[in-house]
Design a protein around this nucleic acid. Structure first.
Lengths: 236, 236
DNA sequence: AGCATACATATTGGATCCAATCAATAGCAT
DNA sequence: ATGCTATTGATTGGATCCAATATGTATGCT
């Protein structure tokens, strides 16, 4: 019974990776092959191959006779990754400026509208310490932010660049990032303003200004996350 | 008899990757698990895991019921990769400028001396169509060039950046690149001059100038390789 | 009680097994 | 001959097996 699904291993790696990102397999925890095999109703063989892929992508660490451990990046790792990400997305937007279509700009504008509206709601939720309203709006924050950045990367037309940026995101449990980025009203509005500046520059097709705005935006977000992590003693 | 070597799979992936880079498994060729297993005197299991790692790193492509194929990047892929590499090494040097030690600058200066000397010999070899002298000097070209760029990346102090740049190099059979870069005296001297400019800027600790020189240098090399490939109908 | 040692169990890692799929060849009809 | 079909052989892919190592627990000693 070789392969019922098209690419089982790839799909397993994706699903496991997603759950790491979601924090369901927390940083530092061990991934037992037998348990994963049972969970996904397959044998250990494809699980092992999926884990090797995640290892190659830097999501997990493989200790010789001990198995796979979800990596727990420290402040320095995050600072390094954001430095690189700022640079790559800076490149992306400087390329995108030349090739972006009006339709894509429109998508960014819409994403930005949703982003601003969500930030407004999150700000209110934060002010009233309304955890429920907060949780309800975080997915919208993620969606509109991803769309905004995604359009830029797509418009850059560089597939390799896209792949690298995507891989950079793996390995950081999203929930912790989000906590840092969606907790404070002032910082979130700062984010909105940065997006606005980016949107303005790209609309004017001003490559160098767009790049500057984008790298600044990402570096600032990175600093915020690092600050947040350090102020509460590490990730996890 | 679990694991005699510390990390068998990793070592296999490295060795197979090296041979791909060396062109011994040429682009487009199929990698048969059984053959590899025999070659490295192991069973198919660790081979399969190593192939999964290489797949995750973008060195090979995994077609569902057909196995692994060495990727054959086209001109566009190479252009994309060099665009990214230029950006990443640009970032690396702008960071390195701040942290580089005198000892590291000295290492760059030495590498540059060897590089210039080797280019001189290669130029003579090219002028006299002396293929033997050419082949004899290419390893020196590689070594001094790698050292030059390696010091910069090391001095950047960003490990993630280093990892990314290393992975970017995988998947391009080196021999073809080298052919493009070491064939013409004028281009090689241009390369030497670019290294000189980089060295000057980094010695003066001029970050923006160093970055400009580095990105220019790499973009130019990329163009040269693409031109070379297109003028002889694709890789391999 | 605290600590070290020894044993039992759990887990990994390579080898092997077999079904499913693909590639190649041979056979057949047009 | 050329093109199509069927069969054989090669190869992949998931499951299973067993040895080696690590982990966890119980036992004995100070």
């Amino acid at each position: 019974m070789a392969t019922s699904a098209a690419k089982l291993v790839g799909s397993l790696a994706e699903r496991i990776g997603a759950r790491i990102l979601a924090g369901e397999y927390p940083p530092g925890s061990r991934l037992r092959q037998e348990a994963l095999a049972a969970e996904y109703a397959v044998s250990r063989t494809p699980i092992r191959e999926a884990l090797r892929q995640l290892e190659a992508k830097g999501v997990i660490q493989h200790v010789p006779n001990q198995g796979a451990i979800v990596l727990a990046p420290d402040a320095r790792d995050i600072r390094e990754a954001y430095q690189v990400r700022a640079e790559l997305e800076g490149l992306a937007i400087s390329l995108a400026v030349e090739w972006i279509t009006d339709e894509q700009i429109e998508r960014m504008r819409n994403a930005q509208k949703r982003f601003a509206a969500t930030v407004e709601k999150l700000t209110v939720a934060a002010r009233m310490s309304n955890a429920k309203a907060h949780l309800k709006n975080v997915p919208n924050w993620v969606e509109s932010n991803d769309e905004f950045h995604g359009v830029v990367i797509e418009a850059s037309g560089n597939k390799r660049l896209r792949q690298l940026i995507r891989d950079l995101h793996l390995g950081f449990t999203r929930s912790v990032m989000l906590a840092a980025l969606t907790m404070d009203g002032r910082r979130m509005r700062e984010n909105v303003a940065q997006h606005e500046a980016i949107l303005g520059a790209i609309t004017r097709h001003d490559a160098s200004e767009a790049r500057k705005a984008m790298t600044h935006h990402i570096l600032r977000s990175g600093e915020l996350i690092v600050w947040w992590l350090e102020s509460r003693g590490g990730l996890q």
